[in-house]
Simulated scan of single mutants.
Amino acid sequence: MPSILSFPPIPKPARRGFTLVELLVVIAIIGVLVGLLLPAVQSAREAARRMQCSNNLKQITLAMHNYESSHRKLPTNYTNGTSTAGNFSVFAQMAPFYEQGNMLDMIHFDRPLHVGCCPGQLVAPHDTAAATAIPTLTCPSEANDQTFYVTSLSGSGPTQAYAGTNYAMNTGTGVGTLYDTRLPTDGVSWINANVGFEAIIDGLSNTAAFSEHLLGQLEQSPSEPTIDSMRRRTMFDVTCAFISRTMPPSEPGMTGYVLPEDPNLMEAYTRASSLHRGWSGQRGAGWINGREYWTGYTHYHPPQSGIPDMQSCGWGVFGVRSNHPGGVHAARCDGSVGFVTESIHLDVWRALGTRNGHEVMVEL
């Protein structure tokens, strides 16, 4: 019989896995790539947010132009009889002109916005409108909660919800006693103003109309802010000690409170004042309400200032700030929107805030 040949089994190739060192190297490479890619992604997202914010201001300013064409004046805060406790904001007045038809069903200009004071108690259906956020009035870079819960009637009334806004109308420089907008200011808005485009003698392209600010703290009366991010959202709360209580007042400002020209002196000046009584967190707390600390701003502070704002019963100085790196958007009365850097000279920034300062602006 022929012999049966036998062969040794063919060995299977050994399976080779990653060593621990190789695995750590791969993880390190992935980490480096993510570290390189993440800032680019964040930068692209912020660029998109900045574009959307600029477009929001463009839409708001276009609505202002349409309002002016219909009424022959710009929208402004106004009195209801002798009351200056706040009525429908400029944004509420312009609602028909930036495609907020659903808001028009909830806003009745023939009825009071609210009753009482500081702030008043919202009257239905305005309470529903006040709590409804409007995307056009919100900066996409804003990180804070947009809904504020405000206790009405100086703390004795019900707590009501307000949707905040990151945009505000220019009430002027706020220097000296110009923070008191019961009388005409050097801006384009004050209580019962009757400003048409013909009154802006510096030129529409040389005069600011709207800019942006960060929303305040959700607390009505927060503790003293200790870090920069909180200081930029919190206001000095100053006693409402106006010299004249008539409307219009016979004399502007509060007793013993005349703001210095240099905003760097404002904090020490306010702290030393006998009128300083604590802190307020309601910056931008309601788009529907026509009070300056909610829907107005001044050119007193430079953009992105770390010095807190000041409010007294709704009036005061309110800076422009944003979460955009390096500056803020500002819309001019001609409808153009530009990015204003935080390094802008204060004199130039204030010149942009005046309607009749006889300044000729250079490109920002």
Rank of each mutant, 00 (worst) to 15 (best):
M1Y: 13
F7K: 06
P8R: 12
P11T: 14
P13S: 09
R16A: 12
E22G: 04
V26M: 13
V26F: 13
I27W: 10
L33T: 14
V34S: 09
L37N: 09
A40C: 08
V41G: 03
E46V: 12
R50D: 15
M51Y: 08
Q52W: 03
S54N: 11
Y67A: 07
H71Y: 15
H71T: 06
K73I: 06
T76G: 14
N77H: 08
Y78A: 09
T79F: 07
N80K: 13
T82E: 06
G86C: 02
N87E: 14
F91Q: 14
A92D: 04
Q93E: 09
A95I: 01
P96T: 08
E99M: 01
E99Y: 02
N102F: 15
H108T: 07
L113Y: 06
Q121A: 03
L122F: 00
S141F: 01
D145G: 07
D145P: 04
Y149F: 13
Y149L: 13
V150L: 11
T151H: 07
S156A: 13
S156D: 14
G157K: 08
G157H: 09
T159V: 10
T159R: 12
A161Q: 10
Y162G: 00
Y162Q: 09
A168H: 09
G172Q: 00
T173H: 02
G174Y: 04
V175N: 11
G176D: 11
T181A: 11
R182T: 05
D186T: 05
I191V: 15
V195F: 03
I200N: 02
D202K: 05
S205M: 05
N206S: 06
A209I: 10
L218C: 03
P225Q: 03
D228L: 13
R231A: 08
V238Y: 01
A241G: 07
F242K: 06
T246M: 11
E251L: 05
E251C: 00
M254L: 13
L259T: 06
N264W: 07
Y269P: 01
S273P: 06
S273Q: 01
R277I: 12
G278V: 05
W279H: 00
W287I: 10
N289V: 14
G296R: 00
H299C: 08
H301W: 12
P303E: 03
G306H: 11
I307K: 02
I307S: 08
S312M: 09
C313D: 10
G316T: 04
N323G: 00
V328N: 04
D334E: 05
F339L: 08
V340W: 11
V340Q: 05
T341Y: 10
I344R: 08
V348M: 09
W349F: 15
G353Q: 02
N356W: 02
G357P: 00
G357I: 00
H358S: 15
V360L: 15
V362Q: 08
